[in-house]
């Protein structure tokens, strides 16, 4: 039961990483790509860590895995804002849809 839940979470996590990469490939500008990477990859990491924590040997080991998630979130939040701001300062105009 636990193993199935864990395996499921690993697959969901892998899917979100895949979606992040897909967004990186398909989205038209750096701002949209940041949306894809920051949000999808972090959710993927969260699922992965939860899945592995479910089958950890002890409570402490599980908590240690889960401790990684907020760190990753803080990193993505700070770095993605820094990149967006820098792109804006460089004068990179956001992509707009042609046919509204």
């Amino acid at each position: 039961m636990l193993e199935m839940a864990s395996g499921g979470l690993l697959c969901i996590g892998a899917f979100f990483f895949f979606a992040g990469t897909l967004g990186l490939l398909r989205f038209p500008d750096v701002y949209c790509r940041l949306h894809a990477l920051a949000k999808a990859d972090n959710l993927g990491l969260g699922c992965l860590l939860l899945g592995l924590a479910l089958q950890a040997d002890s409570l402490a080991a599980a908590l240690k895995l889960l401790l990684i998630w907020p760190l990753g979130l803080a990193a993505s939040a700070g770095v993605s804002y820094a990149i967006a701001r820098r792109a804006d300062a460089l004068g990179i105009a956001p992509w707009r849809r042609k046919d509204p």
Binding site: L24, V30, L34, L37, D41, L48, S76, V79, L90
Partner: peptide
């Protein structure tokens, strides 16, 4: 295409690398 796109590498290692 832009310098900002190349900075995305920094994000990738923080999440995918850790995963």
């Amino acid at each position: 295409p832009t310098a900002a796109d190349r900075m995305l590498v920094a994000l990738l290692f923080g999440t995918t690398g850790v995963g």
